[in-house]
Design a protein around this nucleic acid. Structure first.
Lengths: 342, 342
DNA sequence: TTGAAAGCGCTAACAA
DNA sequence: TTGTTAGCGCTTTCAA
């Protein structure tokens, strides 16, 4: 692999001159610039980033912390961030964290070792020390899809509780009263969405019954299927289900399918996130759309500003969600909650 | 951020000693080792990778080249690779390539700039020069999910054509004759799977008709939906569809759903890859399972061996596929190909 | 068992 | 406009 000295020797100039050419600096005679550029091309010379970042103290790289088993939602979010950052001349680097404390610790170490210019967290790490260490290392950081206003860290996300409340209200508006919930304990959105569900019920004066709620261990389709089976077993008269993620909803629909209960005729199902596949399902999944592209773009902009030295705005950026009433939710048949025919 | 000299000063030793301690070398007095280790922990010192790799000429990092819009299949593959490589003490770094020649070029540059120890290609790059440059830079490389035996590069993949042939034969075995194909032009598996489809038809003496084939521009659900609509428009009497990827199949099912043609009763649909969601769909998607974990593990092992200096085995590693006859394919109703009732 | 010194590839300040 | 020099943080001889 060629290095800057090789090119310098070939061009009969000093390494500094090559550096100037490669970095587009002024004060290089045009003919020399040409000569060097030709050599660079011919030899496929690319500056060594490690050496470069050592002297510059910058890597032009932003770390993206994601869960080990990141889903399509995070995948899409990442794309939006990547695209925006690329426009600013920054690259990205993945840091995968498993749902284990040691993994979070290890990630912190890797984050430090890489001399990143900034970090975007797509994963809500449990360990409060994690944020503390990052914060007082002075490394710019943005929380993306969740907030921690208490930590004074900038964040971009939707109003999870309001969105879940609106989602549940949609179901209620369709005449449903006995609404099951597939919730999750992992990450704060799990609890926030559950709170929104409860708030909507309360507002409609529908009793919140623990028997209608299942807290699943992970946000996968399989977990959704198991959760739905559980719900079906203990509570036979539900007419609608709110699953706190689309993957969960897909699994719930599967359980319903296996039980011979067609969606949406026998049961309405509502998801959350609007992952790629949701619109293409048959029937298409009703869900709450998070503005993925906007969230990603906004997070990228904030991190860029932070890196550029603009002081952090710690008020969370709350972006609007959209309720997508597609085909898995429908008006409840039979009597409505007042005993009249729908 | 602490550096090695800071720790050395704090411990009252030289940087060399700290280096020995951090790297677990011998010849350090136990008490000094302890003292240094304590300081390292207290101060959260982590060696700077850039500096480290500059002198070591190794980064303990393997680049993973993936398509910009990587799908769940590639996501899962990546997880398998990551896990295995982690066990060997190697990290991974993503290199996203868009479906544009400049993007491939840019990726090559980034690959060089990063001083990677090896590269695993999950994306089939068009530009033959790409492989050439990598190959003669001496950078270990493994092709994963596709092969290029002509280039003498090690690879891990299934027998795409045989798998597609078996898939089509499954449909034929179910009594289907008028089988549509949703194929794609991108990546060689598109053509290979199409070849398998044609081979199966020929073997069953079913005419291969161009009117039953649609070549879609991308492997997304939406492309599948459009392709299926096209097929439905021009050829009303198909009884089964083979989609060369699961995403395409999901879209095809969607088009069928919109057209009021239930799957599998009105039409059997068969996918390919067995992505995460396929088993959880309702009905669950019949497909060809690629042994994702094994492919990833094998690729990781090969790259590790290559990095360790074991000479490359350039014969492709062909792993077995599995036909998963789930719920979207069923025996054709009505008369079979000999005119008898099924 | 330890430390001093050199050097990895690059950029930037300074001198010419 | 160009080259020389120093130094980024680390590891590794080599010498002590």
């Amino acid at each position: 692999m060629m290095n800057i000295k090789d090119i310098a020797r070939l061009a009969g100039v000093s390494a500094s001159t090559v550096s100037r050419v490669v970095n587009g600096k002024k004060y290089v005679k045009p003919e020399i610039r040409e000569r060097v550029l030709d050599l660079v091309r011919e030899n496929g010379y690319v500056p060594n980033n490690a050496a470069r970042s050592m002297v510059l103290k910058r890597t032009f790289t932003v770390g993206i912390v994601v869960p080990d088993a990141f889903n399509m939602f995070q995948r899409q979010l990442f794309s939006a961030i990547e695209r925006k950052l690329e426009g600013y001349g920054y690259g990205t680097r993945f840091f995968l964290v498993k749902a284990e404390p040691e993994s979070e610790k290890a990630c912190l170490g890797r984050l430090k070792a890489e001399m990143l210019d900034g970090v975007i967290m797509l994963l809500e790490v449990d360990d409060p020390e994690f944020y503390a260490v990052i914060a007082d290392s002075g490394l710019p950081v943005v929380l993306c899809t969740f907030g921690r206003a208490d930590l004074g860290l900038p964040s971009v996300h939707i109003d999870e509780e309001a969105a879940a409340k609106a989602a549940t209200a949609h179901l209620i508006g369709l005449g449903h009263e006995r609404i099951g919930l597939l919730a999750g304990a992992q990450f704060s959105f799990g609890k926030q969405r559950q709170a929104g569900y409860e708030a909507a019920l309360r507002e409609a004066r529908i009793p919140v019954m623990a028997g209608r709620v299942v807290v699943v261990p992970s946000y996968t389709a399989e977990a959704g299927r198991m959760g739905m089976k559980e719900l079906l077993g203990r509570e036979a008269d539900l007419t609608a289900i709110f699953a706190v993620t689309d993957e969960l909803a897909v699994g719930a629909i599967r359980a319903l399918y296996e039980a011979g209960r067609p969606v949406p005729d026998a049961m309405s199902v509502l998801g959350f996130d609007d992952i790629d596949i949701s619109a293409s399902l048959s029937p298409s999944l009703s869900t709450v759309r998070q503005p993925i592209a906007e969230i990603g773009t906004e997070a990228a902009e904030i991190i860029y500003r932070l890196i550029s030295g603009v002081p952090a705005e710690t008020d969370p950026i709350i972006l609007p969600y959209t309720l997508l009433a597609r085909e898995t939710t429908k008006r409840r048949e039979g009597r409505d909650r007042n005993g009249n025919m729908a």
